[in-house]
Design a protein around this nucleic acid. Structure first.
Lengths: 237, 237
DNA sequence: AGGGATTATTGTACTTTTGACACTATGGAA
DNA sequence: TTCCATAGTGTCAAAAGTACAATAATCCCT
């Protein structure tokens, strides 16, 4: 029963962004020039980093997210820890690790957090650390570095599970939204169609969704009534 | 952005055991003599230990559990990681740490797993490592070392959530069980009463609960029919 | 052998929730 | 004014959930 001599711990953030165009995830593109004299090709990966020695897990996730997106105060939730001893040992990932880590051979356990933002309200200005940063539709994500595809899948599952039970949909919508937007969000995240009238019947039962004295503007059709979430009443639903 | 120099990672196992007498959790009593010339009093804690340097998280949880209970092959599931920088810094926990750890001042992040066993079938023979080991009713757990009360609460919540959605109830029951036992289990875990007839109506819809050609024996009343779970059909329910 | 104690087993009526389904209303653009 | 696009609304049938009580099987005791 040897104590673990030196292992590293990181957080990885799966930041979901939503707008009318679908559900996106924030990915980092590894820098091309890292690979100038190394084998391996740049890949995309989730934003993540080693935690500081006296930093809490959630604080680390917030810091990493802020450093990469300049967005503060978003909903962030831990969903799973990934600790396969070989998760950073794959050949495809060695070059990048050697370029950014002082101890590239160390085992790294990572704790996954998912975050939610509305791409309407805040538009995160991703600080471009290690190459480019981009929002990619969750259905069009290619192979990622390390085990980040698994982590992404875990995050999607957690999001789906919690969307209904934890009243977090408003984190993905603008402050004022229409019922069609809300329905689209549910359909996109849960990958499932809902009947418009039945959906609205259910929304009427949610006391934390409140109608505003305001209508949609600038659309070429009948403007929809705007709603907002009242966080005070989230428990009664 | 300093890399973390040296932090430690552990797993803590919340092993739930169930029998007619209720839902129990396996606790370790810290050794008295550890405190001979130290301040502090022995407390109870969850079984847990540092992971080995090349060991996966789940493997670590299995190992720790085996070392402490001699039980193998139980259902084990990760539910949360706990990483408060001060979670092992509390005064009450220092004496014990100094007695068992080579680096008692290191920060330790822990990953929580919960496990399920039936106290009917297997009766785990807890290997007595660090003092005694005992099954304590979940409603009678006193103050534990570190943040283990939080971890226990997290495990209970995870168990409650997953009992219905993941068909794990049979992990807590003997291989052959009566419908009354199944109902008692649900009532105990979810802390909620069910109507007997309605409960049985629902069980009939679960294709993975199958009646046996066998009845209860040795009871002083009408013997109940025995049932068992058919793991092959767990998905259709 | 009979009666009492104990738990097992079963069905029905009512209420609530879910699910399917199609037309009218409003505002902007042409 | 007409056309286009999306908003908004109610009813009926099926399914699921909920409340509720009498009879049956076995053991024990006398």
């Amino acid at each position: 029963m040897e104590p673990n001599e030196s292992l590293h711990l990181s957080v990885d953030c799966v930041l979901f962004g939503y707008d009318d165009d679908g559900l996106k995830v924030l990915l980092i593109n590894q820098k091309e020039d890292t690979y100038a004299h190394a084998q391996g090709r740049p890949m995309s990966q989730l934003p993540g980093d080693l935690i500081l020695i006296d930093e809490g897990l959630e604080a680390a996730a917030e810091r990493v997210l802020f450093e990469l997106t300049q967005v503060n105060g978003v909903y962030l939730k831990q969903f799973h820890a990934y600790g396969d001893p070989d998760r950073v040992k794959d050949h495809k990932d060695r070059a990048w690790l050697r370029s950014v880590r002082t101890m590239p051979d160390q085992r790294v356990i990572t704790v996954g957090y998912f975050g939610l933002v509305s791409l309407h309200d805040h538009s995160p200005q991703p600080a471009s650390f290690a190459g480019g940063v981009s929002w990619v539709d969750v259905n069009e994500v290619g192979p990622l570095a390390f085990d980040h595809n698994s982590i992404l899948n875990g995050a999607i599952e957690a999001l789906q599970t919690q969307l209904e039970s934890h009243h977090i949909s408003f984190e993905l919508l603008p402050k004022k939204f229409t019922l069609s937007q809300l329905q689209d969000l549910y359909e996109t995240v849960l990958d499932k169609k809902f009947d418009k009238r039945n959906f609205r019947k259910n929304v009427k039962k949610m006391s934390h969704v409140v109608p505003l004295d305001e209508k949609q503007q600038g659309v070429m059709h009948k403007p929809a009534q705007l709603f907002s979430f009242n966080p005070d009443q989230i428990e009664n639903a």
